[in-house]
Each structure stands twice: as C-alpha cells, then as structure tokens.
C-alpha cells in the first residue's frame, strides 16, 4: 500500500503540500482533484521520491521512500504525465522498452512484452517504429501508459494524463483506461482538475486546496455532505458544466 504520513513540502517559501495523510487503497483508483496549484501534482512527485518531503514520510508497502530507496521503488510505480513525457529521440517501441534494455532483458522477451502492451492499450503495432513527433496526442498518451506498465508495477500514478487531448479522443481514452485499470487491478492515483473525469474514474475522490486535503470520499459524499463551503462551490462550479452537457444530449 502507498501511504503518505504527515507530509509537508515547501518550494522557495511557498507551501505546496501541508501535513497530508493519505492511504491509497490497493487495487482501487483514487483521484486527486483541486484547482491549479493545490499541490496535487506535487503529491505524485513526493510518492515517487522525485522531491523529498520537508516533514513527514512516504511509504510503499511499509518501505520508506528516501534518496537511497527511491530508484528501486520507482520500478514498482508507473508514472504517466500530460502528453506522455516521451523521449523525442526514441521511437515509440524504444520509449516503452528503455527500462528493459537498461535491465538487460533478452530481445525476445522485450519484444513480446512491448507487443502485449500494444494490444492492451490498443496501440497499432505498425506505429511502434514512429517517433513521438510523428504520433497523435492520443497515441503518445498510450505509449506513455505502455512505458509506465512495462515492469508491471503495482502502483500507477497519472498526472493529468488526458488534459491535452481533444474531447473525442479523450472520451475514447477514458473508456480504455478505466477498462485497463479494472482488468489489471492496479493501485491507481490519477490527478485531474475535472470533476466529471474524477467521478468517471474514482472509487475515491480526494479534494485538495492550498496543499491540504479538504475532503475525501465518493462523489456522492462530496455532493451531499460537503465538508465546507469550498467543497460546495467546487462541486457546483463543475456540476453546472455537467448539467449543461446533459441538456445538450437530451
């Protein structure tokens, strides 16, 4: 289980995360949501040990994430960022298989794993030798997901993975992702600022404000029993859009 215990982090005198306690239940999807700058992306980077907390600690299955343990623990966590974060100098296949080559896998094993992931993410096999610049936004995101899944990690951390996509591609990928999350049974932490997306994915939704957790629970909890005025406003703001969308569909 991935846990954050009393974690605080300040960047150049600006607090990004304040005293956060979170346990991410295994095999479920938790969505971190909040306005820009609420510290949700920083929480993922803290989990990976890309930044170290000023106070508190991060644990994966009881093992503390620190400078020494982080490189090994990261191989048990997959990380996907907006637009995939692909390396422009490597083609899609080599982006996915970079760690396999680093770990000295045999070529055949690597190839099979890449093809397996391509099928899982519905990425066309024929596009594996294309460079990121030659792929569509949705394809880049699929490659980013394949890369994160290569070592079959128990945790998957996704930082606004769909924010840069147009609505149709986005909807298609949302369906695909939810299916993959359910089938693979991973512990998923997904960051978004879109409540509709949060409701679509999240078994549990965590609302953050100024680096602190305001409320966590299901969408129903947030709507029916808001912890404070901010939660109500946040929900109302996004529900307006949701309702408008529903009217258009009628």
């Amino acid at each position: 289980m991935l846990s954050l215990r009393g974690v605080s982090k300040t960047f150049e005198k600006t607090p990004a995360v304040r005293d956060v306690d979170l346990d991410f239940t295994p095999r479920t999807t938790t969505v971190l949501i909040g306005a820009s700058g609420c510290g949700k992306s920083t929480l993922l980077r803290l989990a990976l040990g890309l930044v170290m907390p000023d106070r508190g600690s991060v644990h994966l299955d009881g093992e503390r994430v620190d400078a020494r343990s982080a490189p090994a623990l990261r191989r048990r966590m997959g990380y996907v960022i907006q637009d995939g974060g692909l390396f422009p100098h490597l083609d899609a296949g080599r982006n996915v298989s970079l760690m396999a080559r680093h770990l000295g896998w045999e070529a055949e094993r690597t190839r099979e794993r890449v093809l397996e992931l391509a099928r899982l993410t519905r990425f066309p096999e024929s596009a594996l030798d294309r460079f990121p610049v030659q792929l569509s936004g949705g394809q880049r995101q699929r490659v980013g997901l394949m890369r994160a899944l290569l070592l079959d990690p128990e945790v998957l951390l996704l930082d606004e993975p769909l924010a840069a996509l147009d609505p149709l591609v986005r909807a298609e990928l949302q369906d695909g992702l939810r299916e993959i999350f359910r089938n693979l049974g991973k512990t998923v932490v997904l960051v978004t600022h879109d409540l509709a997306e949060a409701a679509f994915f999240g078994d549990c939704i965590v609302l953050l404000r100024d680096g602190s957790v305001v409320q966590s629970g299901t969408l129903r909890n947030l709507v029916e029993a808001p912890a404070d005025e901010y939660v109500s406003r946040f929900v109302r703001a996004q529900r307006t859009l949701h309702v408008t969308g529903a009217e258009a569909a009628r």
Partner: peptide, 10 residues
C-alpha cells in the same frame, strides 16, 4: 522529460 527518466528508475 528529466523527471520522466528519473521516474522510470534509471
């Protein structure tokens, strides 16, 4: 990109 490489565990 730098963080992506780091996050892979390289």
């Amino acid at each position: 990109l730098r963080e992506s490489a780091e996050a892979l565990g390289l």
